[in-house]
Amino acid sequence: MSRHDSVVKPPTRAERKAALLAELEQQRIDMLIDSDTLLRASSPLDSQWKSLKLPLYAIGGVAALRIARHPGGAMAAGRKVLAGYMLFRKLKLLTKVAT
């Protein structure tokens, strides 16, 4: 047995291309299977969302109307939410520094 018999040749360009195309085809098949699984898993949520959509739109419309008529209350609430968020961030930063 000579030294040249144990040398493994790298795959040719055509072989690499064929391997990549086979891998792509397998990925497409996997994505089709996964998307079908996702659709089956999310179908109960979709049906519940359809039943809640109209009431949520109505509530959102009423809230938008109230905000349009009395913007001062919404602005005050927005300032309080922003202040709370900033306080939360500051406390989070302080706990990081303290530990």
Rank of each mutant, 00 (worst) to 15 (best):
V81D: 00
F88H: 08
L56N: 04
L32D: 11
Y85Q: 06
L24A: 13
L87M: 08
S42W: 01
A74K: 00
K9Y: 07
R89L: 11
T95C: 04
D5L: 08
G78K: 01
P71H: 02
R66Y: 01
G84L: 03
G84M: 04
R79F: 10
D36G: 05
R28I: 09
A76Q: 04
M1Y: 09
A74E: 00
V8M: 07
Q27G: 02
L20Q: 06
L56D: 00
G78I: 00
A63R: 09
A18R: 11
G61V: 00
K9L: 13
T37R: 12
D34W: 06
R89H: 06
R28D: 09
E25H: 07
V7W: 05
S47V: 12
L24F: 13
Q27H: 08
Y57M: 06
L65E: 01
A58D: 03
R13A: 15
L56F: 15
S35Y: 14
T99K: 13
R40D: 13
R3S: 14
A58R: 05
P55R: 03
K80F: 04
V97M: 07
L38V: 06
V81S: 06
D34N: 14
R16H: 07
K92P: 00
Q48T: 11
S43R: 10
W49R: 13
A77H: 03
R3C: 11
G73A: 02
P10W: 03
S47I: 10
I59K: 00
Q48H: 12
W49P: 03
L45E: 11
K96Y: 14
P11A: 13
A98S: 06
A83T: 06
S43Y: 05
A19Q: 11
K90Y: 08
D36F: 05
A76M: 02
S47D: 15
R3D: 15
V8C: 04
S6H: 14
R28K: 12
A63Y: 01
R79K: 11
Y85C: 08
L91W: 04
S51V: 14
A74I: 01
L56W: 13
A58N: 04
L39R: 12
P55S: 04
T37C: 07
R69S: 02
R66V: 03
A41M: 13
G84R: 05
D5K: 07
R28Q: 14
S42C: 09
E15P: 00
S6Q: 14
K50Q: 13
K90T: 11
I29A: 12
T12K: 06
G61T: 02
H4V: 12
T99G: 06
Q48N: 14
M86E: 11
D36C: 01
R3G: 15
P44K: 04
G72S: 09
P44T: 05
P44F: 04
D36A: 08
A63I: 05
V8T: 08
Y85L: 12
A74S: 02
R28F: 09
